Simulated assay, not measured.
Amino acid sequence: MTFPKSLWAAAAGLTAAAVVVRRRLQARPADPAAPDRWLTVTINCEPGEVQPEKLPSPLSEYGERIETRIRPAPGDRGTELAVRPTQPQPTTAHSVPARLTGDDPRQDLRRALREAKALLEAGEVLQPDTPPTTRETPGGKLVGLLSRRARGEGVL
Rank of each mutant, 00 (worst) to 15 (best):
R65M: 11
P90M: 07
A93Q: 10
P131S: 08
P128Y: 01
P97M: 12
A116K: 05
R114V: 01
T15C: 11
D108H: 07
P74N: 09
Q127I: 07
A30D: 10
T101W: 03
R65A: 15
A150T: 04
E67A: 10
P131D: 08
L113Q: 06
S60W: 04
A17K: 00
T2P: 15
Q107G: 06
L145E: 09
D76C: 00
T40G: 01
A34D: 08
S147Y: 09
T42V: 02
T101I: 07
P138F: 03
A122R: 15
D31E: 01
P128G: 04
E80V: 01
N44Q: 09
R24C: 06
W38P: 03
R151D: 05
Y62P: 03
R151W: 13
E124F: 12
Q89P: 02
E153N: 11
A12M: 13
V21A: 06
D108G: 15
R114L: 10
R149T: 10
F3Y: 11
E46H: 09
E61T: 15
R71M: 05
T130N: 08
L126R: 15
L126W: 12
L113H: 07
A34N: 06
S6V: 14
R99Q: 14
A98W: 04
P97G: 04
G144I: 01
P72R: 02
S57W: 14
L119P: 02
P58H: 10
E61K: 15
D104H: 07
V20Y: 15
P56M: 11
P72C: 06
K5W: 04
P132C: 03
P47Y: 02
L25R: 12
P72V: 07
P105T: 13
P128F: 04
D76Y: 00
T137S: 15
T40W: 01
A11L: 15
T91N: 15
L55Y: 12
T42H: 00
E49T: 05
P29I: 07
R69D: 14
L7H: 14
L55R: 05
V19M: 15
T133L: 05
G123L: 11
V50Y: 07
G102C: 11
A33L: 09
E121V: 14
L146Q: 07
G48W: 01
R114W: 08
L25F: 03
T92F: 15
K5F: 07
G139F: 00
W8Y: 05
Q26R: 11
L113I: 06
G78M: 00
E49M: 12
Q26N: 05
A10L: 10
P105E: 14
R99C: 11
